[in-house]
Amino acid sequence: MAIRDDFEVVASQVRTVVQRFALGLLVIAAFGAMLVGKADTVLVEHARVLALDVVSPVLEAIARPVAYANRAIADLREFASLREENARLREENARLLAWQTAARRLENENEGLRSLARFREGPEASFITARLVGDSVSAYMRGALLNVGRRVGVAPGQAVVTGEGLAGRIAEVGENSSRVLFVTDVNSRLPVLVERTRERAILAGDNSPRLRLTLLPSIAGVQTGDRIITSGHGGSFPVGIPVGEVVETSDGSVRVRPFTDFSRLEFVRVVDYGVTGLVGTGAAAPAPATPPGGTAVRSR
């Protein structure tokens, strides 16, 4: 009997202590989670991927009606400006036809020259089409969740493109979901070329809608309106995907507007280029030294 009474007394004392220090314990637990996240990045990465995999079907269910509603609104808006849009498109079509002729001629010529020079093509790229099921946009991050994952061949470091140009790269991959980091994210560093001058540079995001062109040999050679394309350095990106155009060159900084409209992304394509080894696994295990012109995230 006495033992049981003692036990109850101790139990109630423990309960009182826990209640009194509940807040302290919770705060300590939160700090503990942060410390674990700092110390064991791989564990946190696994947890992230697991959470994404669990949540992505729910998100997909939410995303569909939202996408329909957005499309309906966009339709209404376009209806209002149908006439002007038509005229503009007709004009653009005429211009593009002229370009098509030029492109055909150049393609033939290029083929001829390549066979003359025994040029070896790079690996053939294949595409995986994905739906955007979630936004990963906060004050600290620019990204999105896709409904494709390892099962269909998505791997960290692969390029994500839209019809307009490059959107970003794959940062985390789950079984059936993945997270893409947009080029506008503060962690994004992309090796690029200025299309006109073939000068190499790094395109860096800073969470704002404009990108920054850095490590450029000479700023003088860049003009407003120059197109920026991927350079393929680092290995995992194909060469020549359009990224954006220069909109501002003023005292030492070059700003680039990305071609992709991030506010209305719905479907994207993941480029499987066959080579992803050079970049490593992206965020999970950042390379201690960023490879020259690599797309690895900032090392910690």
Binding site: A33, V36, A47, A171, L181, G282, V297
Partner: peptide, 8 residues
Amino acid sequence: GGPGAPVG
């Protein structure tokens, strides 16, 4: 969270 953001 993105890469590097604290969890918790």
